[in-house]
Write a protein that binds this DNA or RNA. Sequence first.
RNA 1: GCCCAGGUAGUGUAGUGGCCUAUCAUGUCGGCCUGUCACGCCGACGACUCGGAUUCAAAUUCCGACCUGGGCGCCA
Length: 430
Amino acid sequence: MHSPIKEVNPQSESVEIVGWVHEIRDLGGLLFCLVRDRTGILQVTIPKKKVSPIVQEVMKGVTRESVVRIRGTVKAIEKAPGGRELIPDNVELLNSCETPLPLDVVEKVSADLDTRLDARFLDIRKPRVTSIFLIRSAMMDAVQVYLFSRGFIHCTTPKIVAAATEGGTELFPIAYFEKEAFLNQSPQLYKQMMMAAGMEKVFEIGPIFRAEEHNTTKHLNEATSIDVEVSFADHRDVMALLESLIVHVYGQIREQCSDQLAALNIEEFPIPRIPFPRIPYEEAIGIATAKTNEKISFGDDIGTTAEKAIGDEIGEHYFIVDWPTAIKPYYAMPYEDQPHLCRAFDLMHPRMELASGAQRVHQYALLVEQIRAKGLAPEGFEFYLNPFRYGMPPHAGWGLGAERLLMTMLGLNNIREAVLFPRDRHRLVP
RNA sequence: GCCCAGGUAGUGUAGUGGCCUAUCAUGUCGGCCUGUCACGCCGACGACUCGGAUUCAAAUUCCGACCUGGGCGCCA
């Protein structure tokens, strides 16, 4: 049985490791071969005159990034990296690697993102990139553990759907036998139906698809959404849930991923403090107007420039609350006393929007009215609207962008860094 | 979709009309080397995105196409 490289220590008498050849330094009579697995790198030292001729013979065929299995003795040596090295009794070449490599895994020479994504499997072997995805895995785990601990039920809803969730955003049409269908842009309608189904607290983590031709460092055409919906809750309840989830995730990553954070050169990993400031929309556009000299009127969307200005001003996570009803989807609940404002919120990181949510409209008549007000036809939403006629509880929820959360947490400068195989306007392969 | 900047060995770059038979690093191959850790030294290999135009002369200027990055719009 082989050991993870991280766990190899001088106390282990005989050890077997498997991995990729990271670097070879041949000094003549002495050869150093660094072997890497996803947990770390170990120096294998080969004093040529002292090891068996078979080991020497096999090593001649070993190129960088070849896959090897090595058995030998571990020694504590101060001058070796990590204070330990492996003297092999046996080296097995499991698979050789062609040369030249499409990119440099050791990162002596950098590669453009495009080159990296073309050879993503190799790019991910870089310890720095491996770390991003180990943290992503820990992040997803932390989200699920937290939500389960709060009594949530995990559900899975269709990604092939018949209609748009809310208009506005563009959908990818697909052929569904003799019918036209689309890839879902959001599980919104289905998670609301789970409220009508009496599930009370549900979450779903799944792909969402947007056919917008944007070309930015924070948009993807296929993204991962962390979606939550809660019955008998209002917008304030789910905002509190959201901010405490964010804090939990940061805390878990700080606790569990110190090696990965170090690999990413992240020395400080402060956990956000709650409660996050709640900034009413009207105040937010006031801040943006003051800082940018751009005039933003009530009812305008907050553009990129304004968003950055507000983020600079606040300097930490914050919520924008009390949005104009007119610029939020029809399912956002208006305030009874001020129907031009609604119980919707966006969770913002100083760099960008992370999540949006709201208390939802649960009254059938109001919902139909709001759908009409958006210029949409209620007839197209019958499957969604029917549940509202038969005992829909009041409810609230949100959707959180997983890639954006990871990106802002780790300070990645492009959202594509947070996805294994990103889908953007031009990239469909690999 | 709009605007801006780009496209030179496997990778990352220098080169803004002739000095380019194209720079440097890394890599690969060969040689030397027993403590490297960006190992060192010697030698070799390997590239101007495509099409058209201007010019005695184009990697370099112009036009078009394709591709890439960034900003904005739209959006989460």
